[in-house]
Deep mutational scan, measured.
Amino acid sequence: QNEKLANELKSLLDELNVNELATGSLNTYYKRTIKISGQKAMYALKSKDFKKMSEAKYQLQKIYNEIDEA
């Protein structure tokens, strides 16, 4: 289960640069939040902690959705 979550989180991290570029014309909230979420996700992957990875995955998905809707 950890392996599956780690792969999903890696996949979301692969999209980080594209989504970060998409924040160029948006409010600074999005820029700041996506950077923080990305850092948390990288830390969670290194720690291999299921709870941290779950939270990081949720945060990344949430900010990606917010950027898409903005």
Rank of each mutant, 00 (worst) to 15 (best):
V18M: 13
K35A: 08
E15C: 14
K10I: 08
A44V: 02
L9A: 00
S54I: 12
N7T: 12
V18A: 12
I63E: 00
A22M: 14
A44Y: 02
K57D: 00
T23W: 09
N2Q: 13
E3Y: 07
Q1V: 13
L5T: 02
D49A: 02
N27Y: 06
L12R: 01
N65T: 10
S37Y: 15
Y30I: 05
I63S: 01
L13I: 08
E8I: 04
K4M: 09
I34G: 00
N27F: 06
I36G: 03
N2D: 08
Y43T: 13
D49K: 03
L13D: 00
Y30T: 03
F50H: 09
Y43E: 15
G38E: 06
G38T: 12
D14R: 12
Y30D: 02
K46H: 08
E66V: 03
I36C: 11
L26G: 03
Q61N: 05
L21K: 13
T28R: 12
I63P: 00
L16V: 03
S47W: 05
Y58T: 09
E69Q: 14
E8K: 04
S47P: 00
K57W: 07
L26E: 06
Q59D: 11
E66Q: 09
Q59R: 07
G24K: 14
Q59L: 14
E15L: 15
K52E: 11
A41F: 03
Q61C: 11
E8F: 03
Y29H: 05
A22H: 07
L5H: 01
E15V: 13
D14L: 11
E55A: 09
L45F: 05
Y58M: 10
A56Y: 02
A70C: 11
D14I: 06
I34M: 05
K52L: 15
N2F: 15
L5D: 00
K46T: 08
A22I: 10
I36Q: 08
L9D: 00
E20N: 08
D68F: 15
S11M: 13
M42F: 08
K48V: 03
T23F: 06
K57H: 06
L60D: 00
L60P: 00
I36Y: 08
L5Q: 02
D68W: 15
F50M: 07
N17W: 15
M53G: 00
E8P: 00
A70L: 08
S54V: 12
A41H: 01
Y64Q: 06
E69S: 10
T33N: 09
A70N: 03
A22W: 08
S37H: 11
N2M: 14
Q39N: 07
L16M: 05
T33V: 11
Y58N: 09
E20H: 07
S37V: 15
N7L: 12
E15M: 15
F50I: 08
A6Q: 10
A70M: 09
L16W: 10
S37K: 08
I67Q: 03
E69R: 12
I36S: 08
I34V: 08
K46D: 08
A22Q: 08
T23S: 08
E8D: 08
F50Q: 06
E20Y: 14
I67P: 01
G38Y: 14
I67M: 04
K51Y: 08
K4G: 06
L45K: 01
E55P: 02
Q1Y: 10
Y64V: 07
Y64E: 01
K46L: 13
N17I: 13
I36F: 08
L16S: 01
K31P: 02
A22T: 06
D68V: 14
S47Q: 07
A41V: 04
E3V: 06
K35Y: 10
N2T: 13
Q1L: 12
Y43S: 14
A44W: 01
K62F: 05
S54T: 13
N7V: 09
Y58D: 11
K40V: 09
E8G: 02
S11G: 08
S37W: 15
S54R: 10
A70S: 05
N27Q: 07
G24A: 15
K31Q: 13
Q61Y: 04
R32W: 13
A44S: 03
K51P: 03
A56L: 03
M53C: 05
E69D: 07
L45N: 00
K10V: 06
Q1T: 10
A41D: 01
N19M: 15
L12D: 00
K52G: 04
L13M: 05
